[in-house]
Design a protein around this nucleic acid. Structure first.
Lengths: 336, 336
DNA sequence: TTCAGCACTGTAACCGGTTACAGTTAGGCT
DNA sequence: AGCCTAACTGTAACCGGTTACAGTGCTGAA
């Protein structure tokens, strides 16, 4: 493997000239540039970025912490992150934490040892010692964020979106509206669930519909938990006429469950989801849902992080990206 | 940020002793070890891996080239890669090529510049100059592989799996079996499509069923292309009684299309898929399909790559992992 | 007392880039 | 001719680890 010194020797110039040619060809005379170019070609020289990065004390890599890369929503977010990374010359290191704080800590260690310059976290926590956090810490939290978080966040307005979809159900005539929750409890805190629940409650409250505790069924964002919720909703008395599910997978499972019980969607029960995953429009019936700008969340998070890294961040930024209610065929006015 | 020299000074030992303590504490006297330990703690010293990796000329990173990270099958494969990487101390750099050879080349450049030590490619091509390939080149091809590839591959037996599912359809009484193909043509060559088509053909041939060209409909692995294929299959004369789709998404789209035309699955048409994505068992009806060991493909690919990197590879390995036919409710004997 | 041998330690070179600083050269002006 | 400046170039230090090699000090046997 040839080094910059080999090139310098072959081109009969100094290493400094070669280095300058590599970094800014304008800085060297045409004649030198030509000689260096020839030497590089002949030796098939490739600069050793391990050496460059070491000297500059920069890795040009960022770490993405994701609870589950196999979740299509997260992989779309990562696609956005990766897209900006590629544009700006940053590599994306993947850290699939599998919901384990231990794994998270192991990955975070890469930042301390300078293998990564910053972190984008897709779970709602800071992976290190939060008391050490300052606005110049290269950390951005996306997708699942605490409201009171002291670091930059990139998110949607979950409360507003949930309120929008609930309002829509009310506007077409529903009064008994169930809600299939995301995971939330002592073992796993989810601001998403909290925020969407708040939006649902606000919509009911604004319409003077009392909240019925029996209409709140816990889930865990999986297809299975949607199916499992079917019987619990059908046991309610009086039975709800519409159900807002906190993600599309659960809505999907619920629709299957309802159909297997002989109920029709939306005639016997309206169902709405959240996320607008690709399968939502191929569901039978096509799913009414909230569309999230997944890739854009990733892109915005990455831009925010790079901005911090390159010293352009003057304040902790909080981005809120717009969502959209997508009305399809799984919701309709209740049969009176 | 403190360096090893600061630690040495504080512990009143030399940098060599500190370095030895970090790499193998057995090598230093207990007294020195204690002093170094204290100094490291007091200074909150973290070794700079940029420096270490530079000296060792190793990055402990590998690059994964994936055509589309948002595809849940690929993200499961990456999960497997990442799992072994974490275990063995290798970071995973993500390269979402978006089917662009240009992007692929940009990413591959990271290997030449030593930012990554090896590549796992999930598309069926070598991203560099294949004439430079030797068995010690740290490159592994997984998921989509050419049979004649000169480099290590990790794959399933697509032909055998397709033959198995087609045989199954024949065994329950079907004679007119359609096939919804994956992408293949002048612009995009897919060994997967070729291999699965071959298996389908072999099964028909073994059963003395002549191949009907009209039963072969092209698709592109998307939900939409499954739905679009519906009319083309229904136009066939005589109409097939079963359709083997080369992935689950297309099967999903096709089932929706058939149902929207008033046909019942499996009574009026059996449908089988390929991959066994999570949605397959929540489809209505639950989808008969071939289960692929996605994470295991990733794990095997990563183990193979690390083996090459660590000098343990004596020959180009070709791994073929097992698949399984999963019979669910979307297939049944034809109504005679 | 001498010395072999072991356990441990320190000095300094090294990895391959970057860059501060000093030096050289060419060309234009008086 | 003499001088100034701009444009370019080369030398060598530097980044923070690792490690070859040359000690040093101690123990115990001859």
């Amino acid at each position: 493997m040839s080094s910059i010194r080999d090139v310098a020797q072959k081109a009969k110039v100094s290493v400094a000239t070669v280095s300058r040619y590599l970094n800014d060809p304008e800085k060297v005379a045409k004649k030198s540039a030509y000689a260096v170019e020839q030497a590089i070609r002949q030796l098939n020289y490739k600069p050793n970025l391990l050496a460059r990065n070491f000297f500059k004390s920069r890795s040009y890599s960022i770490l993405v912490l994701v609870p589950n890369i196999a979740n299509p929503f997260f992989s779309r977010v990562i696609r956005g992150i990766e897209d900006i990374g590629q544009q700006k010359g940053y590599a994306v290191l993947l850290g699939d934490t599998r919901f384990s704080l231990e794994r998270e800590a192991e990955y975070f260690h890469r930042v301390e040892t300078r293998q990564a310059e910053g972190v984008i976290q897709l779970s709602p926590n800071f992976p290190g010692d939060i008391s050490a956090y300052t606005p110049s810490t290269p950390f951005v939290n996306a997708c699942e964020c605490l409201h009171e978080a002291p670091y930059p966040t990139v998110n949607i307005d979950n409360t507003d979106a949930a309120k929008t979809v609930t309002n829509y159900l009310i506007s077409i005539g529903h009064r008994r509206i169930g809600c299939l929750l995301g995971p939330d409890g002592p073992t796993m805190h989810s601001p998403i669930t909290q925020d969407r629940l708040l939006g649902y409650q606000q919509a009911l409250s604004d319409a003077n519909i009392p909240l019925e505790e029996q209409y709140l069924i816990p889930g865990d964002f999986s297809l299975q938990s949607g199916r499992d919720a079917t019987d619990l909703f059908l046991k309610c008395s009086p039975r709800p006429t519409a159900i807002f599910c906190m993600n599309d997978e659960m809505a999907f499972g619920l629709v299957q469950g309802l159909k297997s019980q002989g109920l029709r969607v939306p005639e016997d029960m309206s169902v709405a989801g959240f996320d607008d995953i690709e399968f939502a429009q191929y569901c039978d019936p096509a799913l009414t849902t909230i569309s999230q700008p997944a890739e854009d969340l990733g892109r915005t998070a990455m831009r925010t992080l790079i901005n911090i890294l390159e010293g352009g961040a003057d304040a902790v930024q909080r981005h809120v990206l717009p969502t959209q209610l997508i009305v399809r065929d799984s919701t309709a006015a209740p049969v009176t």
